[in-house]
Computed example of a mutant assay.
Amino acid sequence: MDRRTTLALAAVAALALALSGAKFWFTPSTVSVARTIEQRGAFSEAERGAIEIFERVSPSVVQVAARSGSNPMTEDEGPSSPGGAPSSSGTGFIWDNQGHVVTNDHVVQGAKTVALRFASGEVTEAEVIGVAPNYDLAVLRIGNARQPPPPFALGSSADLKVGQAAFAIGNPFGLDQSMTSGIISALKRRLPTSSGREIGNVIQTDAAINPGNSGGPLLDSAGRLIGVTTAIYSPSGANAGIGFAVPVDIVNRVVPELIRTGRVPTPGIGIVAANEALATRLGIEGVIVVRTAPAGPAERAGIRGVDLASGALGDVITEANDKPVRRLSDLTDEIEQIGAGRSVKLVVKRGSQSRNLDVNIVDIGRSQ
């Protein structure tokens, strides 16, 4: 036996010796079986509450698809979803047992035809019977005689608290019957509308709201309607934790008027106010009147605007019905609460002199 063969046999013997002390485990070939399901415990109180809200109210939430002529509208509700939802889709909800549906004005603005898709999958046509651009609200009427799902219970937005739970149901990106939750993160926000006015006392929430949620309900933990989702603040166009809703107290005032007459009066006194930034630069607290509408209530009451010939400052409105007026929203809020056909008591400052004036409130929307 030569040296090479001897070394080879020695290596094989060493390997055999090493393997003799090792342990190897092999899984026998068996038929795979499903694992046993472990039963979960009871839902938490918060989970039970959210589930109950969704199951109770979601049938009354509808998808709204608006078309201008034969082409889908190109408003802010985002691209078509994977399921083929039209790019104009928004959300609405049943308002009453007469088949009225509430949504946002910007969802149906300029629409020639509107279709509704219910939670059951049924699709029906609807008619726009009233719009209020100043509040971004619209009312539709279901086109056929079907019995609509029951309306929501109404809450109040007057007693809302920052930190309380909020739930939104809608159709983000055309994905219907989606529910998100969060809290009310701020109150008394102001939200500009396409009509050039502002909605006051707007609710801010961090419940996820995305394009397609517009016009859907914002609910409290009792499942009551507390607002109508209307906008998001987002540089990217998607949820960034800041959403807004029209408070239900405004909705409950505006919607019945839209059902009755198709429009909502725009109460005013016939003034054009200076930009708030100008008042701040001048150190003035109040509403600076730039000009008054010819023969309007403010002009008839003796209110003056800026004197263009001399450059003299116009009158400054500092109080309305004994409430301080620091900005235009303070004045418009008070005027809207009083309503057209009545009068408002103003304190008007001209130079160093102040005087009290009773000014009639009219529906300035009829002259527009």
Rank of each mutant, 00 (worst) to 15 (best):
262 G>E: 07
194 S>Y: 09
215 G>W: 08
189 R>A: 03
173 F>Y: 15
178 S>T: 15
79 P>R: 03
134 N>G: 14
328 L>I: 14
96 D>K: 02
346 L>E: 09
331 L>Q: 09
108 V>C: 05
189 R>Q: 09
138 A>E: 12
21 G>H: 11
285 E>P: 00
326 R>M: 02
367 S>V: 13
329 S>P: 07
227 G>C: 05
280 T>L: 12
155 G>K: 03
263 R>Y: 09
213 N>T: 04
238 A>Q: 13
59 P>Y: 03
275 N>K: 11
332 T>Y: 13
46 A>E: 15
335 I>P: 01
269 I>S: 00
109 Q>L: 12
20 S>G: 11
165 A>G: 14
18 A>H: 06
303 I>L: 07
149 P>Q: 01
194 S>T: 07
328 L>H: 02
368 Q>C: 00
238 A>K: 12
164 Q>D: 11
196 G>K: 00
25 W>A: 11
198 E>V: 13
112 K>R: 12
153 A>C: 00
316 V>N: 00
83 G>K: 13
151 P>V: 03
113 T>I: 09
249 D>Q: 02
30 T>W: 05
303 I>F: 02
14 A>Y: 05
270 G>F: 01
356 N>S: 14
71 N>S: 14
50 A>P: 01
206 D>R: 06
178 S>C: 08
191 L>R: 12
130 G>E: 04
324 P>D: 10
225 L>G: 11
15 L>H: 01
108 V>D: 02
127 E>D: 15
326 R>A: 09
224 R>G: 01
155 G>N: 08
15 L>P: 07
156 S>Q: 01
253 R>Y: 07
327 R>N: 15
252 N>E: 09
164 Q>Y: 02
230 T>K: 02
60 S>M: 03
20 S>V: 06
287 V>T: 05
13 A>L: 15
57 V>F: 06
9 L>K: 07
21 G>M: 08
266 T>A: 08
258 L>R: 09
158 A>D: 15
351 G>Y: 04
254 V>T: 04
367 S>I: 11
367 S>E: 15
313 L>G: 01
45 E>W: 00
285 E>Y: 06
66 A>H: 00
349 K>E: 15
134 N>R: 06
4 R>S: 12
162 V>R: 01
105 D>H: 14
226 I>P: 10
262 G>C: 04
243 G>Q: 10
306 V>L: 15
180 T>P: 07
34 A>G: 12
334 E>L: 06
157 S>M: 07
88 S>F: 04
134 N>I: 00
363 D>Y: 12
189 R>H: 04
277 A>S: 14
162 V>M: 04
139 V>T: 10
110 G>Y: 10
272 V>I: 14
351 G>K: 01
